[in-house]
């Protein structure tokens, strides 16, 4: 076949960025956070994360086998879902908890809706939400981080946000010593919390990697964090407006992992830049609303899930006008 005139269907230029490549890169970018979690919370945390990944991959594989479909375990999406779920669990939970969470995340949230690309909600977050509502006690018993790697019997403790909710800001600063120590401990990750959410610096390293590779853009995370910081600054303080502590809110809880790794999920966020900013602002607003006024100390998970539901609507609203077409007056859906 030496015919120089080859007729083929578009696309003609293919990028080497595949789904699998993106998924594995995101998983790799979470490695520092996983490492810090393992360091602070010990082998039990590693087992929890490993179990979560293993059962997620297994669920995906078995489901696709049962339906006689091609197994897509290799694309890494199930691995990533399992990893994200594991990182948002408390370090010490019974072994069945990550398994049930992965089952709900993969089978109920992803596969029943049609598999990768068709899920409405972020699978890992739905898995976590399911677990939080099902086992409220298990999911909120936090362990004190122990730098000594082989310490099995760590004491239970409250998360910074838990202390903030129950006992107020002054008590929180008192627990950590002074404000500067509070910030640095939050940044490094030496605090109670989920396995992968505590270490701000590790998460930021991962996020920087993703930004450099252009797998994520700044639109969602920055609008998310910006709105949350603004809300925290304006309404976070006791009494007077504009007296809150935005830095504390940005560094605590699941804010960083949520903004950089959960909200930026391609499938469940708007695909247009303008829509992404609206999406991020909504996430930030809802997070702070739940943190400051709601019943839960932490609101990142529910905020992202609620905005996931709005993502298709946002996309419709910001749908670009077809070139040359007239602007429609009402319900402008092309």
């Amino acid at each position: 076949m030496n015919d120089p005139l080859i007729v083929s269907v578009s696309p003609h230029i293919r990028s080497d960025v595949t789904t699998a490549r993106i998924m594995w890169s995101v998983s790799a970018s979470l490695f520092p956070a996983t490492l810090m979690g393992a360091y602070f919370f010990g082998p039990r945390a590693v087992i929890t994360v490993a179990l979560s990944i293993l059962s997620a991959v297994l669920c995906e594989h078995l489901y696709q086998k049962a339906l006689k479909r091609r197994s897509t375990v290799g694309d890494g999406s199930a691995f990533l879902t399992g990893l994200l779920l594991g990182l948002t669990l408390p370090p010490v939970v019974p072994f069945y908890v990550p398994v049930i969470g992965s089952f709900v995340a993969i089978i109920v949230t992803k596969q029943l809706f049609g598999g990768l690309g068709f899920n409405i909600f972020n699978p890992a977050l739905i898995g976590r939400a399911f677990l939080l509502v099902s086992f409220p006690k298990l999911m909120t018993s936090w362990r004190e981080p122990a730098s000594a790697f082989l310490l099995f019997d760590a004491r239970t403790t409250a998360t910074p946000l838990g202390i903030l909710k129950e006992q107020g800001y002054e008590k929180l600063v008192e627990v950590f010593g002074d404000r500067l120590t509070l910030y640095s401990e939050l940044l490094i990750g030496h605090r109670g919390g989920s396995i992968g959410e505590t270490s701000g610096i590790a998460l930021l390293i991962g996020a920087a990697f993703l930004l450099c590779r252009r797998y994520i853009t700044w639109h969602i995370p920055l609008s998310f964090l910006g709105t949350a910081a603004f809300m925290a600054w304006v309404f976070g303080g006791k009494g007077a407006l504009f007296s809150g502590d935005p830095l504390l809110h940005l560094l605590s809880g699941g804010m960083l992992i949520g903004a950089w790794f959960m909200a930026t999920d391609y499938v469940t966020s708007p695909s247009l830049k303008s829509g992404q900013i609206v999406f991020g602002c909504g996430c930030g607003f809802l997070t702070m609303l739940i943190r400051l006024k709601g019943g839960y100390p932490e609101g990142v998970m529910f905020a992202i899930l609620i905005m996931n539901a709005f993502a298709p609507l946002i996309d419709r609203k910001f749908h670009p006008r077809t070139f040359g077409a007239k602007k429609q007056k009402s319900g402008g859906v092309p």
Partner: peptide
């Protein structure tokens, strides 16, 4: 065993109806 509390909450109702309907 530890029951799944969510199933007796309203959200679990939607899960149950959907799964059984399917």
């Amino acid at each position: 065993a530890k029951p799944l509390l969510i199933m007796i909450l309203p959200a679990g109702g939607f899960f149950a109806v959907g799964i059984l309907m399917g």
